[in-house]
Amino acid sequence: MSFIADFISKKNETKEKILSIFLTAGFPDKTRFAELAVKVLDAGADMLEIGFPFSDPLADGPTIQHSSQIALENGVNLKKTFAYAAEIRKHTQKPLIMMGYANPVLSYGVKKFADDAKAAGVNGLIIPDIPIEEYDNFFDESFDGLDTILLITPTTTDARIKLIDEKSSGFVYCVSISGTTGSSNKSISSTLDFLKNTYSTVRNNKMLVGFGISNENDVKTFAPHCDGVIVGSAVIKSLMNDDPNYSNTIDLIKKLKSSLI
């Protein structure tokens, strides 16, 4: 069993759901990123998704576009992201996941990427522009030991949900809305219908829900229909004008965590 799946199961056994937090590598401060990540984990995040930047982030809304842009300006690349992960790994036993687009990985070398990620203590990878159609052409056996987490969205048919559930490892990432990161839910009731259906269709994996979750209310609404939630844009937004101790962001994470219990 995968380390991530195992970790989620153990939490779930004690009736706890997962809080996964997305951060953009090197944002807002390239010299203090590992410190920020450890604070976030200490405040109650169960998992970390570390975004590596790309110049053309198709699936992202304005907030994460902005943080990616700053990260690129800060000189963040994959090498630097692995260094952050290795540093964070020294301080935590929790799952670390990397998230980003296919082209930087292709350019770095797919095998070298997998090797370096594992060496840095990374447990999984999310690449939103590799759907199952491209999966076998992209991920080779060098990804053994590194979970490849696939996404399900409201336009995914039930037949596809089953295929994705078979290929995905670690968990399945259920995108609650048709939209980019940071969009808000247009209709809570149709989102809930979608989550319930997906949750009952997914058999092999744990299911975490992300996109469109920004506050305690969203967490309370969605948590009963999944094994955990993922919060990204709301955290990045908070980091945009936080104090040097990241107090507001840490506060936000504590609140999100307590609303899960």
């Binding site: 590799i130 399900i152 995108v175």
Partner: peptide
């Protein structure tokens, strides 16, 4: 090479 939303 697109996000899952666009596949259908």
């Amino acid at each position: 090479y697109v996000p899952e939303t666009l596949i259908t």
